[in-house]
Design a protein around this nucleic acid. Structure first.
Lengths: 182, 182
DNA sequence: TGATGCATGTAATCCGTTACATGATTCA
DNA sequence: TGAATCATGTAACGGATTACATGCATCA
């Protein structure tokens, strides 16, 4: 599957129309954030190009004291291209975890630094879990999209497993959690 | 942290010396495979360059009917550079999962294709788990490196959680597993 | 005899990031 | 007053992939 910025934008736009700026936000804050990054430097050119190719339509909204907001919407042709990308079986997961790389090479790192890295990872995992929990509440009230629910559930399971393992390996972390919960 | 091919090669070489070809194999088959890819097109130039910079030493082993095997070993300077890379706190995880992207956009995909993708993912997860289990046995007999053990345990937890979630969501998969276990 | 594994390398190309350029608005 | 948010874009650069180039050995 071609998992690049183009496909990603088409995917997000298949839910609702958006500007480049809004896409970036959605990618950073939404479910997408867990599997990809995207910067303005890649998003804007991709949108311009796909608009020229007829995969997107463009509507300009005038703003006061700001550049026009360019709202893009996916076309039937765009949906076809997206569907074609999705029709290729997904490649296997890559975790791209600098944390695990660091752990693997722990004989190279001072104990202090290792503890710092572990604490940071612990915090990251906790925050991600909190974000998902919050989203699950919000989603409940609005439309219950099957895809989002599945991905949120998957993320929750995996993150919780990682957190549990981390706490089992480093009992020190449990206390942090308990004191924080009080 | 600078997680690129250079750092990766230094990391692998910090365990044992190896040729470019062997590094590729190790990266594909070892623990590394879960968090990064690396092709010959990036490995060979990186090794040549790092050798020129004094981070690696080079020993040529003559072979019959094949190019000389160039065995690289990390130097103290190389270890210093690696340590410096590791001294930067790791960035947060990215899962880079085409599977989850596909699930998120499931309203775009036929049920047949979705089932195929799910089955493939199920197989991938099972195979990865089996690989880790096998490695845990092997490692037991040789040196018990703390880093490898941690990463294997982490991988096991996370993969098992993903597998459980998948089977809970798609009861059909459980049968596959049971019949395979008999 | 044809695929797979061993073994190294280069060059074109792609894809994306980072930094730069611009500038108003709102909140602390 | 200074930071963050909104809003779009370009250009230089970096890093890695893909395809190409070469060729023997082994196994099915």
């Amino acid at each position: 599957m071609a998992m690049n910025v183009r496909t990603l934008c088409l995917g997000v736009l298949s839910f609702k129309e958006a500007s480049g700026y809004e896409l970036k936000k959605e990618i950073e804050e939404g479910m997408y954030s867990h599997f990809i990054d995207a910067s303005f430097g890649s998003i804007y050119p991709a949108l311009t190009q796909m608009n020229a190719e007829g995969l997107l339509t463009l509507r300009s909204e005038e703003q006061s004291g700001r550049p026009d907001k360019k709202v893009y919407a996916i076309t039937d042709q765009g949906r076809a291209v997206l569907a074609k990308s999705l029709a290729v079986l997904p490649a296997s997961n890559k975790f791209k975890s600098e944390f695990l790389f660091e752990m693997l090479l722990q004989h190279f790192v001072s104990k202090e630094h290792l503890d710092l890295a572990i604490d940071k990872h612990h915090t990251d995992l906790s925050e991600d879990l909190a974000k998902i929990a919050q989203k699950q509440l919000h989603q409940d009230k609005s439309k219950c999209d099957a895809g989002s629910l599945f991905v949120m559930g998957y993320g929750e399971s995996v993150l919780r497993a990682a957190l549990n393992y981390l706490e089992a390996q480093c009992p020190r972390l449990k206390k942090v959690k308990l004191t924080a919960a009080e």
